[in-house]
Design a protein around this nucleic acid. Structure first.
Lengths: 188, 188, 188, 188
DNA sequence: CATGAATGAGCGTTCATTCAT
DNA sequence: GATGAATGAACGCTCATTCAT
């Protein structure tokens, strides 16, 4: 019956957090984030119980966003390699398009504020990606290696690749391809 | 401002910082670090001008330590693959032996407090490693790719591998080998 | 601003305030009180203009409740001592029955939020009690002492007695008698 | 070897706390107290770990101060009544001289921030007073009543008496005597 | 009238850094 | 040089109160 909680505001806070964290690190103050979101100091805490809660939600939403972007318009019917490259390249495109999200995610990933539950949730979001990796590696040299390990290696490569794409956006496409080819060589 | 007398104290502070940062993150207070080092609050600032300075030095020293450990007792005369594996495996061994150093380095690497100069210094320390990679990739599929990029990919893989080695130390040797084989496949 | 509809809600808020203040002190938040009352945040302020207003009303109602309980079923026709003991003992019984009310009242009595007007109103409510004390002391050593002073001393004794009754409820009746006898000795 | 912690500053903080609490209640902010003490915000916390710690120390010191003042220059050799009156009257004199201390103590006594340990310490400080009460009541009607209870009743009376002395300082001496006579009647 | 989101001043506390000893 | 007390800005978070729904 009262003013309902607004998704718009919630998203504004998450977006503001992304921007502020990307530019100032995880020590960005909640006041700064609130201000950047055009919201009062206290309002931030009606949408997120604590700063750590905000960080965890942001982490999960970013992971989910990547997973969603990557899985969209899958190239059904084409080769595994093409489908995997499609995914890889969408991932890179997302990172280049939203470098602040990428930067924030990099910081969040190693932060102690992110709980094991959130890491698990992030992991779960990547299910489709993992399935594709599993298929791709099923007959190659990594066929007997736990999927988790393979995925972790992929993450390492993609993060490095993305870093180059962002730093040198003019050659982003080239870096993307080179990173992928290295990845595919490792995988198959 | 001249080099203060006691290298011992300086090292105690760096070691304490490593431990405290590994367990509490980069927001660990200078007071905590000083206490852990058995040194007074204020003394920390006669050895390091600011907290950021301390972090930068620590970053560089850790990078240099890895480079040194990795380069020791090189397997001259054996194959490139063996020499590279030797390096890779020493690196992993160091990380498993000093997981706090590894954890601290992971946090420092993405911190905004680390200046470009420090990143460059860390990079420079890896010169020998890079040279080995250059030799190893000289005739393979990555021969035309800038060494920086290749090294970055290697870092991504080694970081992922090390993470597994630390989390599952009983199988550290296996993870080490698997990570290396993936890397070598990518490289050659 | 006219008298709001539901006395039920008003009373629920007062009762909730009693409970919450007893357990958390006067710094209990209005939100907590509202929640405990099963009422919304904002509704509290349609029944009480401010938190201070709520506290003042609660103070007065508790004082009035004591006065009412104490004056009920007076032992007309018996001796002054018996009538006074009856009052004393009802007072103690009330406190033991509702320790939270007693605790809240103790805190409110010394709070700066309670206005002189409220203190006066609390005082007025005790008129019947004061009249009994006046009769009882009329021929004793305190006959020439202002009634206010005598009443204040009585309050001091009753508060101490009640404290013991609540802390050691198994012997409440004994404490009650002992406190009264001390009081009566003082008075007569 | 560094600047030593100064008792002067510690006492200034306690004195400032007394004043500020007396005038604004226990919700007085630590910032206000620090300012009143002529000390920085943060310094307050080098002398007292938390606000609650400060309140507990203040409570204990005030209790000890009363005990000390009351026990000074005891009237050895005179009657128990005279000795007890001496104590009573010194107590009242202290309260009239330092009404802010009295007010602060009244608030602290009922605060939830004061731990049982502190209450015990305050109790211990009153040992000499209790011994005098014990002697005085040894042959009277309260001889079989636990000393704690008798002391509690005394506190109730003295607090009420002191309240009148402070409110009406012109007649403080008269109130003091009247309160004592009531107390002595109760006791003997 | 009821609701609970919105507000922003204010809180207790921490902390990097300075400086008296 | 070593110490740790002093500083005060900044932090995460709370809260009484207002007001859109």
């Amino acid at each position: 019956m009262a003013r309902p909680r607004s998704d718009e505001k919630r998203n504004a806070i998450l977006a503001a957090a992304t921007r502020v964290i990307a530019s100032q690190g995880l020590s960005a103050s909640t006041a700064m984030i609130a201000k950047e979101a055009g919201v009062s100091n206290g309002s931030l805490f009606t949408y997120f119980e604590t700063k750590a809660d905000l960080l965890n939600r942001l982490y999960i939403e970013l992971k989910e966003e990547i997973a969603e972007v990557v899985a969209k318009e899958p190239h059904q019917g084409t080769s595994l390699r093409d489908r995997t490259f499609h995914m890889w390249s969408r991932w890179g495109h997302w990172a280049v398009t939203f470098p602040e999200k990428q930067k924030a995610l990099t910081l969040l990933t190693v932060s102690d504020d992110i709980t094991p539950e959130s890491h698990q949730a992030g992991h779960d979001a990547f299910r489709e990606i993992r399935e594709l990796i599993q298929l791709s590696s099923a007959h190659g040299p990594m066929r007997d290696i736990p999927l988790y390990f393979t995925t972790a290696l992929m993450n390492g490569l993609s993060e490095a690749t993305i870093h180059f794409m962002i730093e040198d956006p003019d050659n982003a496409a080239m870096h993307c391809v080179r990173g992928f080819e290295a990845f595919w060589r490792m995988l198959t």
